[in-house]
């Protein structure tokens, strides 16, 4: 990338590549022509091919850092407000935070009828965190990559929710909670639910099991991939619009208009996707608590 002006496809690929730190297998030929030792080595990937070669033993440093960083921002803001919050007249930040908490609390109350101290804080975390992750989508897409490039870091994808690892990571977390509560609340009833519905006859057990397991697995996947898909597509359009700016002076104005329009549209998409993720989390957990 450094030096020459990238082509559009290079530009797009560059923006869609995570900063990956992982273990390259032994004997792998790197982009700069060097070879990895026989035992393999933990290195930063120089391009997409190296990142792919790392397989599962890799970590997206940018996604992870932005995600954790934004999570800490959430914790810091809400914790400082929680410390300040009193029964007196609220003001400023306290008001804003309490509005969000009230909103989440109402949503959870409407959807989840069981008694569980985990659900509401979980929903709040999911909502605010996903919102913050999505919010990074509104940062001008070249800003951070350029800044980091100046600092010597070649890849930087700052919207964690365009990384399926991040969204699926949360979805799997929710899925594990679903399984846990299904077994805890329903006990043997959960097995019965998997085997005896929708056809309540022993001969249909394999069919039922297949259908129920597909249905069960679809939940975390739909949860994680929906968020990922929406944000990835949004990010992609932002990249394409940015690429349009380089297509000549004539394209500047339409590109600018598109940028603004898409940005405004994302003002809707960002909280909406966060809300959907939260509601689905609560709904799935609510279903896990309901005994038929």
């Amino acid at each position: 990338m450094a030096g020459s002006t990238p082509t559009v496809s290079e530009y797009i690929t560059h923006h869609l590549t995570n900063l990956t730190f992982g273990k390259l297998p032994g004997g792998f030929e790197r982009a700069d022509g060097t070879f990895i030792g026989a035992d393999g080595a933990w290195v930063f990937a120089h391009d997409g091919a190296e990142a792919s070669a790392m397989g599962f033993n890799a970590i997206h440093v940018d996604s992870m850092l932005w995600s954790i960083g934004l999570g800490l921002v959430f914790c810091w803001i809400f914790r400082s407000v929680a410390k300040k919050a009193q029964s007196g007249v609220p003001s400023g930040m306290v008001n804003a935070v309490e509005m969000i908490v009230q909103f989440v609390d109402n949503t959870v109350r409407d959807t989840f009828h069981g008694k569980n101290k985990l659900i509401a804080p979980l929903a709040l975390t999911v909502f605010v965190w996903v919102f913050l992750l999505n919010l990074m989508d509104l940062v001008p897409i070249d800003l951070f990559p350029k800044l980091f490039e100046l600092a010597g870091v070649h890849f930087m994808k700052i919207v964690p929710s365009t990384d399926p690892n991040i969204t699926l990571g949360m979805a799997v977390g929710v899925f594990i909670l679903m399984l846990y509560y299904s077994i805890k609340v329903k006990g043997f009833g959960f097995v019965k639910e998997l085997t005896m519905t929708p056809f309540n006859h022993w001969a249909f057990i394999p069919v039922n099991l297949f259908m129920e397991i597909v249905g069960l697995l679809a939940k975390p996947f739909s949860l994680g991939l929906r968020l990922f898909g929406n944000l990835y597509a949004g990010e992609m359009i932002f990249i394409l619009i940015a690429a349009l700016f380089s297509a000549g002076a004539l394209w500047m104005v339409p590109a600018g208009l598109l940028q603004v329009a898409w940005g405004i549209f994302h003002l809707l998409v960002i909280p909406l996707q966060a809300f959907i993720f939260m509601v689905l989390t609560v709904v799935y957990l609510s279903m896990a608590h309901e005994d038929h």
């Binding site: 890799a58 914790c75 919050a85 979980l122 990571g169």
Partner: peptide, 30 residues
């Protein structure tokens, strides 16, 4: 767009933040 350790890392972070929220944020606010 590879599935890798980031997934596990995110899960751990998720659990930590949820627990933090459950312990130190939600009860005092409510």
């Amino acid at each position: 767009m590879n599935i890798n350790l980031t997934l596990i890392g995110q899960m751990i972070a998720f659990v930590c933040f949820v627990m933090f929220c459950m312990k130190y944020v939600w009860p005092p606010l409510l």
